[in-house]
Amino acid sequence: MDLLNAFITLANFVIIPAIAYGSQLALGALGVTLIYGILRFSNFAHGDTMAFGTMVTILITWLFQAWGISLGVLPTALLALPFGIAGCAAFVLLTDRAVYRFYRTQKAKPVILVIVSMGVMFIMNGVVRFIIGPDDHNFSDGERFIISARTFRELTGLQEGLAIRTSTGITVITAVVVVALLFWFLNKTRTGKSMRAYSDNEDLALLSGINPERVVLVTWVIVAALATVAGTLYGLDKSFKAFTYFQLLLPIFASAIVGGLGSPVGAIAGGFVIAFSEVTITYAWKKVIVYVLPDGMGPDGLVQLLSTDYKFAVSFIILLVVLLFRPTGLFKGKSV
């Protein structure tokens, strides 16, 4: 029985990956939840918005790398991120002007906007594949680890190693900064409050002199920024592939709904709930259990509850359980 090694194993294979993945999902879900709260529909194009922003970031990263600009131990992508956000925001605003705005003036029902977002999804998907292709791209550079498993073992003398990858560290720090900024903006600034007011009661917001078009514009810019940051962090952590980003839609929607659609705090909580469930349920627990149990009592099998390929099923079952017991999500959103 060796609780310390058990914990290190757990941290290395479950806790740290889940925190990184949870942060990425939370940022993605925040974008979905903002659109849901303010523009009042679920944006099916969100995964592709993430892909688009990340693609711009990657292209700029390549450009910087060609110019020999780098951030030293940190990935160059961080330097390219602001350009990615700007590119994504420009594209998203263009979409809003060319597509969504017409439906706002028509007072279209939200479900029509959902269908519209499907069209936008096709277009963005096509654009991303047209520009960067459908293949996998790894654009992470700089130092790979903050602490590698071997360094950790040497430092502590423990049997198990704890690796913290640079991308994980960056993910968590960036996510914390971005979320803090977002909450400060929504709760403390005039524009942020006007967005919440518009989300709460459009007619009264209009009577109060809040300009809806401005609220919508700011919302899209924030969503583009969140999507690009989420997408870039995910890409640094894993890799970039247009189709994977499209598929992130399900866990992201699940996070937003589990947390309570329309609730930013909920989106974050939902992201971590989904990430932790996915990782814990698809992790093979054998190693941890062997450490925890007395010698010779370890299990024979891998003790993996579900194969990794079923991670979508996990998101979905969590979603179902939450909705059955709390129809408005963990943090009362706009009643699902």
Binding site: Q106, E202, D203, V336
Partner: peptide
């Protein structure tokens, strides 16, 4: 036709709360 939601009330994709009725 843009206001015809075919009676859909799927809350996982649409948010009916707070939508404006006043014409801009």
């Amino acid at each position: 036709p843009y206001q015809d939601d075919r009676g859909n009330k799927d809350r996982s994709i649409t948010n009916p709360g707070g939508q404006g009725t006043a014409e801009v």
